[in-house]
């Protein structure tokens, strides 16, 4: 199988999983973040369920190469810098404001109506603004 077919299949499976798990429903996501209200644990099950196959997959990569050839991603860096922390905080604030993160924003596009579309366009604008922001954080902490 070539890499395009596998990417399409992975995307379809990812989209179906996001859809079936309820993660395209902002009420479930905001319910998980609302720890002082009526807490909804669904997201924890989604995250836990997703980590299990990936934990196995990472172990399987040892001493092997990807099906299409090339090499697996390098071992993760342990570098905790300002970009990681500031980026995660900005992302979390936006996530808690609407209840959508990038995957579900894409997966719900067909039924998210104008709200979904406005969110996606704003998200793309934010992504365009990221490289200069990264450079700014680098120079501020250098």
């Amino acid at each position: 199988m070539n890499r395009l077919v596998m990417a399409l299949l992975a995307g379809a499976l990812f989209g179906a999983g996001l859809h079936i798990s309820g993660m395209t429903d902002t009420q479930k996501v905001l319910g998980f973040l609302d720890i002082f209200g009526e807490w909804d644990p669904t997201l924890m099950f989604v995250m836990g369920g997703a980590i299990i196959p990936m934990f196995v997959a990472w172990r399987f990569t040892r001493g092997r190469t990807p099906l299409v050839g090339g090499s697996f991603p390098a071992p993760p860096s342990d570098k905790i810098d300002a970009k990681l922390i500031v980026g995660a905080i900005l992302f979390g604030l936006g996530w808690g404001t609407v209840g959508l993160c990038p995957g579900p924003a894409l997966a719900s596009l067909s039924y998210g109506g104008s709200s979904g579309l406005i969110f996606l366009v704003a998200m793309l604008a934010g992504m365009v603004a990221a490289p200069p922001t990264r450079a700014l954080l680098d120079s501020a902490t250098a």
Partner: peptide
């Protein structure tokens, strides 16, 4: 759904690296 997401990520990793 979470297991499906994990399998999708595993396919993208093991297949495409």
């Amino acid at each position: 759904g979470g297991l499906m997401i994990g399998c999708a990520a595993a396919l993208y990793l093991l297949g495409n690296g």
